[in-house]
Design a protein around this nucleic acid. Structure first.
Length: 439
RNA sequence: CGGGGCGUAGCGCAGCCUGGUAGCGCAUCUGCUUUGGGAGCAGAGGGUCGCAGGUUCAAAUCCUGCCGCCCCGACCA
């Protein structure tokens, strides 16, 4: 993409509405545009990041055996009357009527819809387990939207729903999601801590929130330091095998959000040097809720004994738009965003420092073609700007690599490459530079 | 929803207290000079001062109502 023809409206100063760094940087880098409180348009660069985050979530869901569907944003109120939540949900639910005066709502989540779909087709334990998910826009009319995409009213969420014949099987489904989540965040360069969360009326130990450490986070967490260091399990585990040991390894150590925190236990179970208290951003929440929806909505399957019973369900959410903010909170510096390679809107910027000077133009074009043919998503900065302005805006936007083509280098037959994350620079011939970036 | 704050050019702000021709920086446009970390000079364009009503000879400024946005708290991907 040639920057001169692209749409990347960067700002030198942050709008005063933005208070936290990720929000400021998203606005300054031209990723998003606020349309109303908690409602954002995604501009070209932001959309590219969103799609990449979404795709990583999708791939890790698929790997763990979940199956993608797409449910509507508008749902019938009648379904929610069946589950009993239409009256319970409150002001956060955006309720609307169609031309026939029929009650609809803009879905804040999709337990009812997925249960309706499931019950229409699945009647036997032999068809279980099933895990269906979708990545779809949700709407929650928050009392107080804030921090840009971190707490929007309209947001993109991946929500998965598992269906099992009994609690033991449901636990296996839960474990798959637990580990898939850790892999998902790891691929985005994030270190997520699973913490015990309130399991709601069902109780039990099958509810975890996944927290990214960041001092602007809304949640307070208390955890054993070793849990932070413990990595994700990686993709090559036996997803159909016994995952319990891998989960136990990560749930054995103390970790709790503020509402679940037990100061006495924390003190007793965690040696003083390992006690970590920090703030974090919740980027996922998984829980098992049994027959909470299947019972009232009559989603039943016949067991081996021929007896019909409500299916055992769990749900698993990832805030995709929120993740964009969380990644920036976790990865930026004074100059701007530092995108992890996996979610960067482009892989590399070719910076032409002297647009209009034939030799430099030619060298920049050659670099651009070379990177593109190597399959690298490349942004060619062919704007008629001074070098300083180019460097400042490209650092702000935070692509992982810059390949800098200037008149001095061209005269010497070399270009410079710069790694955004470390600031490390190398001056070398074009071919060697392309090779370094290709990896 | 309780408390606080803010709406003036695309962005950041001054002007309001004490009413009297709407300003500054950045950005934009033109020209010249410049060109490895957000250039210089000269010129130009861009405004229902959030909206509505009121007071007044006169309202960005004073009064009333409404709308919008942000922050803190209680609640949540």
């Amino acid at each position: 993409m040639r920057l001169s023809r692209y749409f990347m409206p960067t700002l030198r100063e942050a709008p005063s509405d933005a208070q936290i760094v990720s929000h400021q940087l998203m606005l300054r880098a031209g990723l998003i545009r606020q349309e109303a409180a908690g409602i954002y348009a995604f501009l070209p660069l932001g959309l590219r990041v969103l799609k990449k985050v979404e795709q990583i979530v999708r791939e890790e869901m698929n790997r763990a055996g979940a199956i993608e569907v797409l449910m509507p944003t508008l749902q019938l109120a009648d379904l929610w009357r069946e589950s009993g939540r239409y009256d319970d949900y409150g002001e956060e639910m955006l309720r609307i009527k169609d031309r026939h005066e029929r009650d609809l709502l803009y879905g804040p989540t999709a337990e009812e819809v997925i249960t309706e779909i499931f019950r229409a087709y699945v009647k036997s334990y032999k068809d279980l387990p099933k895990n269906l998910y979708n990545i779809q826009w949700k709407f929650r009319d928050e009392r107080r939207p804030r921090f840009g995409v971190m707490r929007g009213r309209e947001f993109l969420m991946k929500d998965a729903y598992s269906f099992d014949v009994d609690e033991a099987a449901a636990r296996r489904s839960y474990n798959r999601m637990f580990l898939a989540y850790l892999n998902t965040y790891a691929r985005m360069g994030l270190r997520a801590i699973p913490v015990r969360a309130d399991a709601g009326p069902i109780g039990g130990d099958l509810s975890h929130e996944f927290i990214i450490l960041a001092n602007t986070g809304e949640s307070e967490v208390f955890a054993h330091q070793d849990l932070v260091e413990m990595g994700a399990p990686g993709p090559d585990i036996d997803w159909d095998g016994d995952l319990q040991p891998l989960v136990d390894q990560r749930t054995r150590l103390y970790a709790a959000s503020d509402e679940m925190h037990d100061a006495a236990r924390f003190k007793k179970e965690v040696p003083e040097a390992k006690r970590m208290t920090a703030r974090g951003i919740e980027v996922g929440h998984i829980f098992y809720f049994g027959d909470k929806y299947s019972k009232p909505m009559k989603a039943v399957v016949a067991g081996p004994d021929g007896v019909e019973r409500p299916v055992q369900m769990g749900s698993y959410g990832v805030g995709v738009t929120r993740l964009m903010g969380a990644i920036i909170e976790a990865s930026h510096d004074e100059a701007g965003i530092i995108w992890p390679d996996s979610v960067a809107p482009f892989d590399v910027a070719v910076v032409n420092l002297r647009v209009g000077e034939a030799a430099v133009d030619q060298a920049a074009e050659a670099a651009y073609r070379g990177l593109q043919s190597a399959g690298k998503e490349t942004l060619l900065d062919d704007r008629d700007e001074r070098p300083g302005a180019k460097f400042a805006s490209l650092d702000l936007v935070g692509l992982p690599w810059q390949l800098i083509v200037g008149p001095k280098g061209v005269a010497d037959g070399v270009v410079e490459i710069k790694r955004r994350a470390t600031g490390e620079r190398q001056t070398l011939p074009l071919e060697a530079a392309l090779k370094a970036i290709r990896g």
